[in-house]
Design a protein around this nucleic acid. Structure first.
Lengths: 223, 223
DNA sequence: CGGCATGTTAACGCGATGTTAATAAAATGC
DNA sequence: GCATTTTATTAACATCGCGTTAACATGCCG
C-alpha cells in the first residue's frame, strides 16, 4: 500500500516498485486508504505524513489497530524530531525523508521484509492460476494436491508470466531478464520452455499460454 | 553491546542507556568486541562504523554469521549512500548519523526490540521432524528412544533445514552462514553432510532432504 | 509457393550432486 | 606428551538431470 497525495511522485514510485517485482496499490488520501486497507490485503505500507482527509499518523495508528504486525514506512518532507518521535511511538518501522533516493527506499523495504520473514513468504510468492497454485520460492506447482517441482528456468519464466497475467510480455523482455541474452538460440530455448509449461497446465483448459506472433506471450486465465 | 572508539561519547552513551534500564558493555575496537561477542550474551548491538583493528561492517558481518537474528544499529559520521547500502546488504537494522539525538537513538532501539520480540527463535531449540526429535542445544537426534549425538556441522546444518522446513533453502545461504565461504570445496563439503543427514533419516520414509538443482535443498516432512 | 516464426519432441553434453573412502586436523583420554 | 578417537575436508568416481541444441512439423503472411 502506497499513500501519497503528490500524484507525480506517487506514480513514479508505483512504477519503480512494480519494476522491482512488488504489486502496489496507490491511494491519494488517508480516508480512502483506510477503507482500502480494511477491504484489501496488504503486506506492507508506505505512507506520506501530510495527507488530505486524514494525516499519516492517524492513518498509521488505525492501521496498527487492525494489524499490529504490518510494517509501516513514513515518507516525510520534514525531518523534524517531534514528528519522528510521534511515529516511533505508534510503532512505525522506518522513516524516509524527502527528497529520498529510490535505492535507499528499496533497501529499507527489503531490510524490513527480511526481518518479518515468516509473514512475508506466506503471501508474497504464491500465485493462483486457475486450479493451480504456483509457489515461486519453492519452485512448486500444485493442483489437487499433486505437486510438481519446477526447474529454475521454468519457475523464473512462470513467475514473469504470472506477474503479467492476462497481459502480453515481450520476448525480448523475457530473454534479457532470464537468459541475459536474446540471440537465436536463447529464443529457441524460450520456446522449448513455453512448450513445457503448456504441458503442465494442460489439465486445466481455462489456462492457456498464447503466442502473440513476433511480440511475445500471454498467460490467459479464464477461470 | 556498544562499540565506540571515542571514549567520551562511549561513556556518555553507556551512562544514558543504563539510566534507561539497559545493561551495556562497551568495547573500543572491533577485535576485542568480536571476542567479547563470542563469549558473552548480547541481545542487541550498537556499532560505530569507523573502528580500530576491525571496521564496523566487518564486525557486523561476523556477528551476523554467529547470530543472524540479532539487531544491529550503526553509528556513523558519514551519511554517505554507499555506506548505507553496504550496511543494509549485511542485514543491518538501522542507522544513526552522528551527531545524533539521544532520544532518537532510544526510540530506534525500542522500535527494533519490539519488532524482534516475536521471532525469539534463539530459545526454541527442539524440533520435531517426523518420528525424530532434534535437540539443537545438545546436538542430539532421537527416535524411538534411540539417541545419536550429532557433530557441530551436522547440527548447524540440520537446524537451518529445520528453520526452513518444507521450504527451499539456498546453497549460498547455508554456505555463508555455516562455512562462511562459498567456494567449490565448501560446496562439496555441504554435499557430504547432506548425504550424512539423509542416512540418519532413512529409517523414516516420510522425511526426505530433496535437492533443488542449482538452488539448494528442502527438508520435506510428510508425516 | 517460399520464407520465417513458432510448436514439439528427442538427444546430447556438461555441470551439479550423491556417495564412499582417504587424508588432515582437532579434540580427547591417559 | 603421546596415542586414540572424533570430526571435517578433500579426493575420486558414479550418476543424474537441466538447459541447450538439433531436427522436424506446423502455420502464417507475403
Amino acid at each position: 500500500m502506497l499513500v501519497e497525495d503528490d500524484l507525480n511522485l506517487g506514480f513514479l514510485l508505483v512504477e519503480f516498485l512494480e519494476l522491482k517485482g512488488f504489486s502496489v496499490k496507490l491511494y491519494r488520501d488517508g480516508q480512502t486508504a483506510f477503507t482500502g486497507f480494511q477491504n484489501g490485503h496488504f503486506d506492507f505500507c508506505i505512507l506520506d505524513v501530510m495527507l488530505p482527509k486524514m494525516d499519516g499518523f492517524t492513518l498509521a495508528k488505525k492501521i496498527k489497530i487492525l494489524n499490529a504486525q504490518i510494517p509501516v514506512i513514513f515518507l516525510t518532507a520534514r525531518s523534524l524530531k517531534e514528528d519522528k518521535m510521534k511515529g516511533y511511538e505508534i510503532g512505525v518501522d522506518d522513516y524516509i525523508t524527502k527528497p529520498f533516493d529510490e535505492d535507499e527506499l528499496l533497501y529499507k523495504i527489503h531490510a524490513i521484509l527480511n526481518r518479518s520473514k515468516l509473514p512475508k513468504f506466506s503471501e508474497e510468492s504464491i500465485f493462483q492460476i486457475g486450479l493451480f497454485r504456483f509457489d515461486f520460492q519453492n519452485q512448486q506447482l500444485e493442483m489437487d494436491g499433486q505437486k510438481r517441482r519446477l526447474t529454475e528456468r521454468e519457475s523464473s519464466l512462470l513467475k514473469m508470466l504470472c506477474l503479467n497475467k492476462n497481459n502480453v510480455i515481450r520476448r525480448e523482455q523475457i530473454l534479457t531478464a532470464i537468459w541475459g541474452d536474446n540471440d537465436y538460440f536463447a529464443g529457441r530455448s524460450l520456446d522449448v520452455f513455453i512448450s513445457k509449461l503448456r504441458k503442465y497446465f494442460s489439465p486445466d483448459p481455462s489456462i492457456s499460454i498464447e503466442n502473440v506472433p513476433k511480440v511475445g506471450f500471454i498467460l490467459q486465465d479464464n477461470s
